[in-house]
Nucleic acid binder design. Sequence first.
DNA 1: CGCAAATATGCCTTACAGGCAATTTTTCAG
DNA 2: CTGAAAAATTGCCTGTAAGGCATATTTGCG
Lengths: 201, 201
Amino acid sequence: MDVSPGLRERKKERTRLRIHRAALRLVVEHGLDAVTVEEIAAGAEVSRRTFSNYFAGKEDACLYGDAAHMDDFLATLRARPAHESAWTALRATARTVHAARDLSPDREWVQTTRLALKHPALLGRRLAGRQGFLRETTALLGGRTLPAGMHRPGLLASVFLSALLHGLHEWTEEGTGPLDEVVEAALDEVGAAFTDPAPPP
Amino acid sequence: MDVSPGLRERKKERTRLRIHRAALRLVVEHGLDAVTVEEIAAGAEVSRRTFSNYFAGKEDACLYGDAAHMDDFLATLRARPAHESAWTALRATARTVHAARDLSPDREWVQTTRLALKHPALLGRRLAGRQGFLRETTALLGGRTLPAGMHRPGLLASVFLSALLHGLHEWTEEGTGPLDEVVEAALDEVGAAFTDPAPPP
DNA sequence: CGCAAATATGCCTTACAGGCAATTTTTCAG
DNA sequence: CTGAAAAATTGCCTGTAAGGCATATTTGCG
């Protein structure tokens, strides 16, 4: 018997994922407003009431994958060598997570993003969720060196995140080339101003 | 009789404001979840149904002031001289709007921010609303020169906005010194990296 | 096996968004 | 000034949602 995450926990997680997938599938197909919570519950083969035990609403159910994505990011960032500067660590983390994700069936991230850009309700939840992520990230930046002239780790995290999201959105809307490249380009464009040694004179 | 914005429109606007104020007052006092739409409507002396004619929910009612704030910003930005660089124009607009607002009874902006940081539902709506703002801002940046190495006006707008919000949040949470100064400091900290490519005179 | 804890489900109440139609208010032309 | 058109307010109503509470079911463990 697995005791690592607890056998019970694993079943819970599987259920959560089933609900999430059902939600995503139905909403992608019919639109957010044309799908009821009952339908999602049915699609996941749980009762309406059980749905509410797992998620506060269909929006949260749809965006669960995004939360996992952010957790990945935080775990990876936590593992970066302590001597790296703040920006370098963030940058490297993004690269690592993207590389790992783009191979796996993570077309989902794009799906979710497209949905979020289409449905304000989703976008809102998504962005609200990133606030907590921002806090965590800021905390993990403690002790790392900041770019010249920077004193606020939270500000750096904030700028980093907004660049990341800009890349994601730009690609989702215009679909030019591979996703990675657009995101990386956006990060580099901002990063040029934040490289560690000193910004170009 | 005023015909400037139309007499009818002005009454509508007054009603909208009354609802907004009632919502804000009640939510600040009792918390978002402890206030029903009916109570807000009663507080504004309109019917429950009329509330729905003006706002899609209590969150929107609370955040109406924020929308006005963003409109102010856009109007001011639109009026900046065309020869200014993108960052300079943004920076100047922020200064102007803050100066104009801080004298007026705009304690409300802070109230709203505090509320938003307390209630995820509010934060979400607020952030979703800023997405449209971002688009407009990006459009207004067209034709202006960007910092060296920058090609994406939308990226610049995004970074600018995130710095602005970071300042606002930092101040709201830690309350160190005057609001203006914290926001300006955050903007300057990022701006140092984005000063115009123009050679010094 | 058999009990205790965690989980799933059903029922129920409150709340909310928005369609529709009737009613009142505002505007404007004659 | 007056009456009709336009717009706004309101009430009624329906479908949907969130979550408390109690019960049944499943799971973990001695």
